[in-house]
Amino acid sequence: MSKPLGVILAGGLARRMGGGDKGLLDLGGQTILGEVIARLAPQCAGLVLNANGQTGRFSGFGLPVIPDGIPGFPGPLAGVLAGMERAADLGLSHILTAAADTPFMPRDLGARLSAALSPGRPIALAATREGERLIRQPVFGLWPVALRGDLRQAIEGGLSKIVLWTDRHGTALAEFDPGPPHPFFNVNTPEDLAEARAIWQKND
């Protein structure tokens, strides 16, 4: 498989942070989004940022910004769809998605998701184990562009939960070590931001 298009999902409303873009928060010399870009870019043929509203706030990152193609903030699946449609325009077969607020995402995400694919399981999602449970991390996935028509139909039909759609098509899971730091730690609250800063500055 050739390298996918990387799609950073930043379309959320960040209510628990009081609004705004969580990816623009500072870790102590680097924004969260800057760290995500640094980790994801080497894994991909190119990067785009899925975000809604005024795009100028991301101008310093030098990435194309693509909005949801379906109105009303229907959730991350709309960002996946927007990424699929951009990848189709570029002639790429897959997209690799990551969240804009996860500064410790794996540097080998794409390779391990690709290795997990198998016949009958065309979508791969990341997962971590908590005790006996394997917890899916559905925002971190490798998605075939060929399913974009089906995804659009599902979203327009009211579906918003990622795993309800992926389970229709067969999903491979790639298990990642839960850390510390947890590879899919995401910044949702001011307390999370303080924790992320402490971890990032210790490891930087």
Results as ranks from 00 to 15, higher is better:
88 A>K: 02
160 S>Y: 09
78 A>D: 02
126 A>Q: 07
156 E>S: 14
12 G>F: 13
110 G>P: 00
115 A>V: 02
135 I>G: 00
163 V>G: 03
26 D>M: 07
183 P>R: 08
160 S>T: 15
72 G>V: 01
180 P>C: 11
40 L>K: 04
18 G>T: 12
147 L>E: 09
106 P>R: 11
75 G>E: 05
76 P>I: 14
37 I>L: 06
12 G>H: 11
69 G>A: 03
143 W>I: 14
144 P>N: 02
52 N>A: 03
168 R>V: 08
174 A>H: 13
127 A>L: 01
37 I>V: 13
121 R>F: 05
74 P>C: 09
190 P>W: 09
65 V>P: 01
124 A>L: 06
185 F>Q: 03
173 L>F: 15
124 A>Y: 07
144 P>F: 06
124 A>V: 10
128 T>V: 14
113 L>T: 13
10 A>H: 14
146 A>D: 07
78 A>I: 14
53 G>E: 05
135 I>C: 04
123 I>P: 02
38 A>V: 01
129 R>M: 01
53 G>S: 01
181 P>M: 14
149 G>R: 08
81 L>D: 03
204 D>G: 10
97 T>M: 09
106 P>L: 02
113 L>P: 06
169 H>D: 02
89 D>F: 00
142 L>I: 11
11 G>K: 13
46 G>P: 10
127 A>M: 01
126 A>N: 07
176 F>M: 06
145 V>T: 13
177 D>E: 12
69 G>M: 01
3 K>M: 11
114 S>P: 00
103 P>M: 03
161 K>F: 02
173 L>T: 14
82 A>F: 05
161 K>Y: 08
165 W>A: 14
128 T>A: 08
52 N>R: 05
11 G>A: 15
195 E>W: 08
170 G>T: 03
169 H>Y: 07
104 F>D: 03
5 L>E: 11
146 A>N: 05
162 I>M: 13
47 L>H: 00
132 E>M: 02
15 R>V: 12
59 S>R: 01
6 G>Y: 14
157 G>P: 01
35 E>K: 03
142 L>E: 10
14 A>C: 10
153 Q>M: 06
179 G>V: 11
40 L>N: 06
106 P>G: 07
71 P>Q: 02
18 G>F: 12
163 V>R: 04
147 L>D: 08
174 A>R: 13
131 G>N: 05
112 R>L: 06
46 G>F: 06
117 L>R: 01
